[in-house]
Design a protein around this nucleic acid. Structure first.
Length: 511
RNA sequence: GGUCCGUUCGUCUAGGGGUUAGGACGCAUCCCUUUCACGGAUGAAACACGGGUUCGAUUCCCGUACGGACUACCA
């Protein structure tokens, strides 16, 4: 029996999680669900300087919003806790020590000034890639160059040190990436990365290997930016004696800047008229705000569907997928290799699709909420009618109010262009007749009765209804476009309709 | 610079040795219609380039170009 699939999403809490991070989380989630496995969230907060308060909640809320909550997380721990690396701090040194003993790691005492001096020296000597490696380490202050007693003395005196991996001089490291196939790297292009920092925290490289192993992670699905360090990770698994249970890797194509080229970054947030973050985020330090898809009016199911298709496709021609359907269709084999720019128009289209599938009742709730902000009240029944006639032309729930205002507030001005073109004797005559019919009516107005009354009015004036419809619409709504007029009449009701017609006749001229 | 990764319509992509290179968004035109939208139909729009392999390459191989990632005691 094969092992249970366990995957993790491992963000660092340094601010808001952009759409690319959410996609990585989603693919992990889909893969876990598809294979009946577990999806874990691990907070990678080994850099204490970059910790941003609120970022953890942001991550949690973003995942919750689209319905991909982790099975195990700091808030819902499983058997492999803690799920915050800072709380696992004491666990890492043991493994670093093991590497030290096995000769795969060493102590280094170089100060940042010395490191900088080394890089400058190498750059001056036209060395192509100045790095701490098998050559340069022989000239630095570390347990490989210093006498054993001096190393001990330095350690005993509490001098700051780091532990570095000792990368072999000549070795081929290969890994079989699920997205990219075999990737081969020579160890001479790798450097002696720091494993343990001088503050006693591990770096990402050590921590992620130790934690993935301890947490039983079977597949590492992460962004392509990690591909260059993947060989280092393979080496760490090997030196720690875990190569047999090493997870499989899948490096996801990057999400690119919507304009031009390059990796999508936080800086892109302000540059465009659309969000790149799932939720609104206010940076606690700078106070800067970035917009969120949620606040912009995107429905979670639309956002989910949209990001799922950024770098993956089901291989057939379906476009609309619920989370359940995504799980059923998902496979890593169908993840693309090349970077992806996203098109906000497509996101809008998805939103429209999901908006239209919502019930009038659900949509009415949005409208009612917007109205509350305007200090207006409306019956649920009317709100549902408005939702019903408006949803075919709305992109966001807020359009119900923004684009449908005229059903709740009488126009005080009229579209000039439409008025010039359509306001004429015939229109005035029909409107006057229609008004009289309305006046005589006692039954509540329905779309049907409105239609027959209007038709009768036109007939009585011997005018074709089609010729004056636009003018009627203008009189009642102030504009030349909108949903079915008879539906609007029904929503407005008899009295309001009469008032509006009178106002239009008075304002636009009645002869 | 070095290492690694990538390249099919504007964008997201399907496909894969012989196809009219398919779909979606967006765009255009038409139909429907009381307008706008929805919906329907149609259209414009792509295999980066050069060599090879082959009867045949967009597909396989090698180069070139272009783009990207990485190159921290950040993740």
């Amino acid at each position: 029996m094969s092992k249970e699939v366990r995957v993790r999403f491992a963000p660092s809490p340094t601010g808001a999680l952009h759409i690319g991070g959410v996609r990585t989380a989603l693919y992990n989630y889909l893969f876990a669900r598809k294979n009946g496995g577990k999806f874990l969230l691990r907070i990678e907060d080994t850099d204490q300087n970059r910790y941003v308060p609120g970022a953890e909640d942001y991550i949690k809320n973003s995942l919750d919003w689209i319905g991909i909550s982790p099975d195990e997380s700091p808030w819902t721990p499983g058997d492999c806790g803690p799920y915050r690396q800072s709380e696992r701090k004491t666990m890492y040194m043991e493994y670093a020590q093991y590497l030290l003993e096995k000769g795969h790691a060493y102590y280094a005492f170089d100060t940042s000034e010395e490191l900088e001096a080394m890089r400058q020296r190498l750059t001056a000597a036209r060395v192509v890639s100045p790095q701490y490696n098998s050559i340069t380490r022989t000239q630095m202050k570390n347990s490989l160059t210093l006498p054993a007693d001096e190393v001990k003395a330095r350690l005993d005196s509490g001098e700051p040190y780091v532990i570095r991996i000792k990368i072999p001089r000549k070795e081929e490291v290969r890994l079989n990436d699920m997205v990219r196939g075999w990737v081969l790297v020579h160890s001479n292009s790798l450097d002696d990365k720091v494993l343990m920092k001088s503050d006693g925290m591990p770096t990402y490289h050590l921590a992620n290997i130790v934690d993935d192993h301890l947490m039983g992670i079977t597949h590492v699905i992460r962004g392509e930016e990690w591909l260059p360090s993947a060989p280092l990770h393979v080496l760490l698994y090997r030196y720690l004696g875990w190569e047999d249970s090493m997870p499989e890797f899948a490096h996801l194509p990057l999400l690119l800047k919507p304009d031009g080229n390059g990796k999508l970054s936080k800086r892109d947030a302000e540059k465009h008229g659309f969000p790149i973050f799932p939720l609104e985020w206010k940076d606690p330090q700078s106070g800067d705000m970035v917009a969120g898809f949620k606040e912009a009016g995107y429905l979670p199911e639309a956002f989910l569907n949209f990001i799922a298709f950024l770098g993956w496709n089901p291989g057939d021609q379906r476009e609309l997928f619920t989370l359940e359907e995504l799980i059923a269709a998902f496979s890593i084999e169908r993840i693309g290799k090349s970077g992806t720019k996203f098109d906000i128009n497509k996101a809008k289209w998805y939103n429209e699709q999901y908006l239209r599938h919502k019930s009038d009742r659900e949509l009415a709730a949005y409208l009612l909420a917007d109205l509350e902000k305007e200090r207006m009240t409306l019956s649920t029944e009317k709100a549902e009618k408005i939702a019903s006639v408006m949803k075919e032309r709305a992109t966001f729930p807020s359009d119900l109010w923004n684009e449908g205002k005229f059903m709740l507030v009488a126009p005080d001005t009229f579209d000039q262009q439409v008025a010039e073109k359509r306001w004429n004797q015939d229109a005035i005559a029909v409107l006057k007749a229609f008004r009289n019919h309305l006046q005589d009516e006692t039954e509540p107005l329905s779309a049907e009765s409105a239609k027959s009354m209007l038709a009768a009015a036109a007939a009585s004036e011997d005018i074709k209804l089609g010729k004056v419809m636009q003018a009627v619409r203008l009189a009642v709504t102030g504009v030349g476009a909108g949903p079915d007029l008879m539906q609007i009449f029904e929503i407005l009701g008899r009295e309001e309709l009469i008032k509006r017609i009178d106002f239009a006749l008075h304002t636009l001229g009645n002869q």
